[in-house]
Design a protein around this nucleic acid. Structure first.
Lengths: 220, 220
DNA sequence: TGCGATTTGTCCGTATGTATT
DNA sequence: TAATACATACGGACAAATCGC
């Protein structure tokens, strides 16, 4: 019986996705030191594809690397968290400017569906699904913007956002504060004015930042 | 006489920088197909570090790659050019918001120095120095913003900006239109109000876009 | 549509330079 | 300072997928 292992994705991408999940889940903790040879033994892969995965995760900001020096999982910090939410605010407001005139009723219905899925995940206290749902909810406007560069920049930020959301949820569970803000976001995005939703995003992001802020230690 | 080749940087980074220069200079043209084995022979390096360089350039958007498919130099397009300048507008306005209160007279003096260097490069009709100067001029506010994520996002855009600027300059030489806009930018950045410079950036970017737009063919 | 040629993806063994102890 | 661990790099080899005819 030949063991015909199917490989839909290149091995390097499988490794990348798996390591990214382990970092987001906290299995590999912030600041933890990793070595290539160690990882290649434990994952039972050679260093070639592993190095490619490591480089991509470094580009995403999940790993920190310097030539000939130790590989580390990026440490979380309040400064980075503030930067993350402030740049998300700028990008998402810009996304709404790009998307505003393009919205159709079908698009609005799609956002309501994503809101419902997010609400459901929260009610079930499903931490992973809540994070995924939050990302999908915000992804809506970037998809709608029809702006490839903007979408790419936002999607490169997603893993870092997931890290902070997951970290917070593991400490404090699924909070209910978010959903009222999300309901307002939904309402303004589908039936408000561009100015209203842009103003709301600043408050929305600030609320998200405040929610997570205390979960992060002061010093890097 | 032993040929003692010094390697300050890892080979993969040397390859990356060299390929990036060749793409920006137009030596490797948009849409051109590349093969790893071919490149490794011509550059006299093995495929390992070459693949790492290729991946980084793919992250920067200079190369396009899909599993098992041909590697290509990214084609330029008017749509991408519009996206590039529109997102630059959003990021640079945000950068000024972040940097505004942090400016000192020493910072303003630094911007004037960069303006002078840019003006000098243009007067000398030095195409390469003009592009570099333009980048350095705009880089000022990102450095000042003290926002690591923002700076990183902007710097990842730089190679693409350089491609379009170089392409335009090779076709039309150094134009004089820019410098009046740059002078206004300098004045507002150092002595205007935040609102004024933010409004100016939109016009400034639009002017830059218009300048380059006609140099790019319609169809991708 | 198939089939060979080309190219990418992967692995191994080894060597060398750098960092860390 | 020396010794060890590790990252970087090379070359060959084969498998897997794509491309061209």
């Amino acid at each position: 019986m030949p063991v015909t292992e199917i490989r839909q994705l290149p091995l390097s991408e499988q490794i990348r996705d798996m390591l990214r999940d382990r970092i987001i889940e906290g299995d590999l903790q912030p600041g933890e030191k990793l070595t290539e040879t160690d990882l290649s033994r434990k994952l039972n892969v050679s260093r070639g594809p592993l190095r490619e995965a490591i480089m991509q995760l470094t580009e995403e900001g999940l790993l920190v690397k310097a030539p000939y020096k130790a590989l580390r999982v990026r440490s979380v910090s309040r400064k980075e968290l503030r930067e993350l939410y402030s740049i998300r605010t700028a990008l998402e407001r810009f996304a709404f400017e790009q998307a505003w005139e393009k919205r159709t009723e079908a698009d609005n219905e799609e956002l309501r569906a994503r809101f419902a899925r997010l609400e459901d995940a929260r009610n079930r206290r499903d931490l992973t699904a809540s994070v995924e749902g939050e990302i999908a909810f915000h992804n809506w406007v970037y998809e709608l913007s029809d702006h490839g560069l903007l979408l790419a920049q936002w999607q490169k930020l997603i893993p870092r956002v997931q890290i902070y959301m997951s970290l917070h949820q593991r400490l404090h569970g699924v909070s209910g504060v978010f959903m009222t803000a999300n309901a307002e976001y939904l309402k303004l995005a589908t039936s408000g004015t561009l100015d209203h939703i842009c103003n709301h995003i600043s408050q929305h992001m600030q609320a998200g930042l405040d929610e997570v802020y205390a979960s992060i230690p002061h010093e890097e």
